[in-house]
Amino acid sequence: MPHQDNIWRPSFLSPIGSFTVGDSVMKNDMTAAVVARKLLISKDNILLSKWSDKLVVKDSLALNVQSIPTHLGKSKVLEELELSVNIFDGSIPIQIVGYQNLTLIDLSGNQLSGIVLDGIGDLAKLEVLILLANRLSDRIPQSISSITSLWRFAANSNNFSGSIPGGIAKHLKNLDLSYNNLSGLIPSHLLSLSNLQTLDLSNNRLEGQIPPVLSPSLVMLRLGNNLLDGVILLTRKTAKLTWHTGQNLTNMNLQGNKLSGSIPASIASMDSLMELQLGENQLSGDIPRMPMSLQIALNLSSNHF
């Protein structure tokens, strides 16, 4: 293959002999997406493959083998690891940490179990980490909070337990930990982080009161189906004005908790709010005027109005 073309044509050993992915060719620094389901061999947890060109900048593999291979190309150049929606089982191999240039890891929709090792925090260039829809358990590693480049972390629909690590979202824009077994209090500063835009902690066992300060950057807040109690009292960072901080919120779901008291009248000033879910709580009192922006859903069912 002429080097001047900067073309990567990956070849694999397969049950039917040597297999070259001729339909997945990208040039220069573009991502080469290789889909070779059921044609790849994993031996001793190593993917049997060879490179036909040394100039490889980004790789993105979609595989169909039983366990995550620990050798996936050249560790110094691999930037994107896409292994979603397969039948991988077992644990996440610590060898992944050796791929220090990774910016994206997507292991969603598999049957992975066990813990997420603290070493994941050593991936200093990681921007997106998606672990949703597996069987991962134990605590969410504190080391994730040390990845300054990480802006999206999705670990929903697993079996994680324990408390939410403090500082986990200090660099994140999007955090989804819904549908786990997390318990304890919501970290006091979690909702007030200026970088956070979407937060989903629904369907856990979180308790205590909702932290009273919301960041103006929040667009979506989902805390439904937990054990949260107390009154709804959300204030802006700079002034004690109930609910005024949520000027950019479009979706708020606090349904299925133990919230009591009344709905603050100042909710009417949340001009961007399109969906409000407050059903299945213990709210009472007069129902205030709602924002004119509501158009998706308003749910106040199963309260004490």
Rank of each mutant, 00 (worst) to 15 (best):
residue 90 G to K: 07
residue 91 S to Q: 12
residue 253 N to D: 15
residue 87 I to R: 15
residue 10 P to R: 05
residue 195 N to R: 14
residue 8 W to I: 09
residue 272 S to Q: 09
residue 253 N to W: 05
residue 289 R to N: 10
residue 102 L to E: 04
residue 277 Q to M: 10
residue 86 N to R: 14
residue 219 V to H: 12
residue 31 T to N: 05
residue 24 S to P: 05
residue 304 H to D: 14
residue 305 F to Y: 15
residue 133 A to G: 02
residue 73 G to H: 01
residue 244 H to G: 00
residue 163 S to F: 05
residue 305 F to V: 08
residue 63 L to Q: 01
residue 247 Q to G: 00
residue 240 K to R: 13
residue 206 L to K: 05
residue 277 Q to L: 13
residue 168 I to Q: 01
residue 76 K to H: 12
residue 289 R to T: 15
residue 272 S to H: 06
residue 129 L to K: 05
residue 65 V to Q: 02
residue 135 R to F: 05
residue 106 D to N: 15
residue 61 L to R: 00
residue 33 A to M: 07
residue 40 L to C: 07
residue 23 D to E: 14
residue 301 S to F: 06
residue 75 S to E: 07
residue 5 D to A: 12
residue 28 N to E: 14
residue 277 Q to T: 06
residue 54 K to V: 05
residue 52 S to Q: 10
residue 207 E to F: 02
residue 290 M to E: 12
residue 286 D to F: 11
residue 292 M to E: 14
residue 246 G to W: 03
residue 226 N to Y: 05
residue 204 N to R: 06
residue 133 A to E: 00
residue 218 L to D: 05
residue 252 M to Q: 06
residue 219 V to Y: 14
residue 80 E to I: 15
residue 268 A to I: 04
residue 80 E to G: 08
residue 183 S to K: 10
residue 232 I to W: 04
residue 141 P to I: 03
residue 25 V to C: 12
residue 293 S to L: 03
residue 145 S to N: 08
residue 61 L to I: 09
residue 25 V to E: 13
residue 117 L to T: 02
residue 296 I to E: 15
residue 261 G to V: 14
residue 79 E to S: 13
residue 24 S to D: 12
residue 19 F to W: 11
residue 172 L to G: 03
residue 142 Q to M: 10
residue 106 D to I: 11
residue 90 G to W: 08
residue 225 N to W: 02
residue 242 T to Q: 10
residue 20 T to H: 13
residue 228 L to N: 01
residue 294 L to V: 13
residue 114 G to T: 07
residue 305 F to M: 14
residue 226 N to T: 01
residue 106 D to A: 03
residue 198 T to R: 12
residue 36 A to P: 08
residue 179 Y to C: 06
residue 101 N to Q: 15
residue 9 R to S: 07
